[in-house]
Design a protein around this nucleic acid. Structure first.
Lengths: 115, 115
DNA sequence: CGGCATCCGCCTTGATACTG
DNA sequence: CAGTATCAAGGCGGATGCCG
């Protein structure tokens, strides 16, 4: 197996690495929204009601540091912050699309309907 | 958001559902191996050295119950067990392939080389 | 050989409160 | 509005031991 270390953490395959960047409960929902247009923090919070401030803040920070999104602060009154997609983030959103389609297929096989 | 409940657990989107079936640290590595030919329990354990008996057993059981792989016991001496891919598992392995390729791309962008 | 059961630790996440 | 800090909870996974 192709073991390797990145950011002081041991990985065993490329999937683990990809999931360390865009995995978890919230990063894909965030990327999925930001891919089309810039979003404000409060818009994201309203659109993903089950996320806590702590997790939204943490995920946005990591996605920004990892180059999937960018953060821009507008010095208005009241101040405004916008998060936009990057080229890397756009590629990632295509992976999200694949997983969404696959998840939807699986849900059909299991006879699950969302409401 | 399309909330729904399955198996007594709340999901918020199709990705969450897909990941509940083939996510986690080990299910994709297992599917990735079994997709080409049947594997024995001990072969899998040897091929994924960092997995514990508990997790290998647990993942194989869940993948079998969820219809991604099948389990066949041969009444030989000594007894032999083989796990094979199903049609559902084959579809899942294509998702694994996508994630592997994407992870490999990301690793290149980050300048990471596995050994 | 191919598992399952029990116990336990850590890391992720949640809840709440506070700040510029 | 857009976060950060602190503490608590829970789930994933590890270690070990037992069994057919």
């Amino acid at each position: 197996m192709p073991n390797f270390i990145s950011d002081n953490h041991l990985f065993h395959n490329p999937v683990e690495f990809a999931m360390s960047k865009i995995g978890g409960t919230y990063k894909m929902p965030i990327l999925w929204r930001i891919k089309d247009k810039p979003w404000r923090y409060s818009e994201l919070a309203a659109s993903i009601p089950h996320i806590s401030h702590r997790m939204l803040s943490k995920c946005l920070k990591e996605l920004t540091e990892d180059g999937f999104i960018t953060k821009e602060i507008f010095p208005e009154v009241p101040p405004r912050t916008e998060y936009s997609i990057t080229e890397r983030g756009r590629k990632a959103s295509e992976i999200v699309a694949v997983l969404r389609n696959y998840g939807a297929e699986l849900m059909q096989e299991y006879g699950i309907k969302s409401h």
